[in-house]
Design a protein around this nucleic acid. Structure first.
Lengths: 219, 219
DNA sequence: TAGATTGTTAATCGATTAACAATC
DNA sequence: TAGATTGTTAATCGATTAACAATC
């Protein structure tokens, strides 16, 4: 019986920091280290040490030890268990254009449990090919594939104009979580979760920071 | 004299919603509409109407009118002025791999003022070519180009192992804001702003939502 | 006028940070 | 022991939401 940290409530902010810790801790482990303190993590990642301790306390199986800090192996296992928890994150991707192909080829996802099983497009040229070993099928086969493989996560990388209809199709195919890279707001049934990956919004935040910094300087 | 909304303080959360409004409002304008109410925006984008009004009040030149709502043209101009404010957002990109090429080819950025002027790579095969009209040069020319064109924003799409050294190079070249797509934490001088585009973190949030939703259902 | 919508003030909510006793 | 580090409780900070008078 795998122990799942199922009933722990972690804030959205905490959850989004966990992969950052995970990456950092795996790096440290790779360098042959065996312990790390919250203060050290906080210094390196430019976070508040108390925040780090609180985040880690939520997901670590074993507590940190005064003077020594946390055991790297235990900590990594704790975060992996929390983020992955035995459930594989199988997904489908719709839209094998530039961004879609890039995501299909991105090696980094497997480290976080994401496993893209099939891709879909409307282009005759792409249907039947494979990208990074992942088969590209016609969009009409999305529903059957999702149901057959019991896949609950969908990635949308189609052009804006097609995004809503693909979202509808996914919702109708039993997909319950959509990672949306199309620059548009999707309307989905209540039980479908959507995460918009909004590059424009990120850019806006950065660009504002830059402008403020340059202005402060002038004074 | 262009009126800049320079001294307005908007929260990070507000700033990241502004491009979402902007996209939505441009759509509405394209459909021939001329006014929109905050309640309507809130309904469509699934936000709280008071939040929408507060956000818009910060950036709109003219107030909304009871019964009518906001003038679309004025509102769009207000958000554009706030986000762009006359300063062009010229940028450099380092790392013309899959993701880098995708970003170079992405049409959507210009609508938010981003203008990638040059790209850099170490691959002999790529140097001297153009991607989507943007010249790819050897990495060694980054500093000279940044200084000559007075560019202050850099985009990092190199592999993880090269990211820190590229960040150092950018910082040394006068770049003051880095949009980092490499899955690693960068150490930069205090005056350089960094925005990490962390796909793993986004995935973690979505994946958690999905798991919670599926679990709630079982009960 | 009546009703929809606005903008503002106050209350609530959630997340971060500070303070500090406990522990190895 | 002394000092670094932990985990927890309380205070602060920031953002969202509720309540409501003003307005077209």
């Amino acid at each position: 019986m795998i122990e799942c940290k199922e009933d722990i409530v972690a804030s959205k902010a905490t959850i989004s920091r966990l992969p950052v810790y995970l990456r950092y801790l795996r790096d440290k482990l790779g360098k042959g280290e065996s312990n790390v303190s919250s203060t050290c993590i906080a210094d390196d990642l430019q976070l508040n040490p108390v925040q780090v301790r609180k985040d880690l306390a939520l997901v670590s199986g074993v507590p940190g030890r005064p003077k020594l800090g946390f055991d790297l192996v235990e900590l990594i296992a704790g975060i992996e268990s929390f983020l992955g928890c035995g459930n594989s994150n199988d997904a489908l991707l719709a839209g094998v254009g530039g961004l879609g192909s890039t995501l299909l080829s991105y090696e980094g996802f497997s480290a976080y449990g994401l496993n893209i099983r099939a891709a879909f497009d409307v282009s005759e040229r792409l249907i039947g090919t494979k990208v990074h070993g992942i088969p590209v099928m016609e969009l009409g086969k999305l529903k059957g594939t999702a149901e057959r493989l019991n896949i609950r996560m969908g990635i949308i990388t189609v052009p804006k104009a097609a995004a809503q209809s693909v979202a509808d199709l996914m919702a109708d195919s039993g997909i319950r979580a959509i990672w949306n890279f199309a620059p548009t707001h999707l309307i989905v049934p209540e039980k479908v979760a959507v995460k918009n990956e909004d590059l424009a919004a990120s850019l806006a935040v950065l660009s504002k920071k830059l402008r403020d910094a340059l202005r402060d300087e002038e004074k």
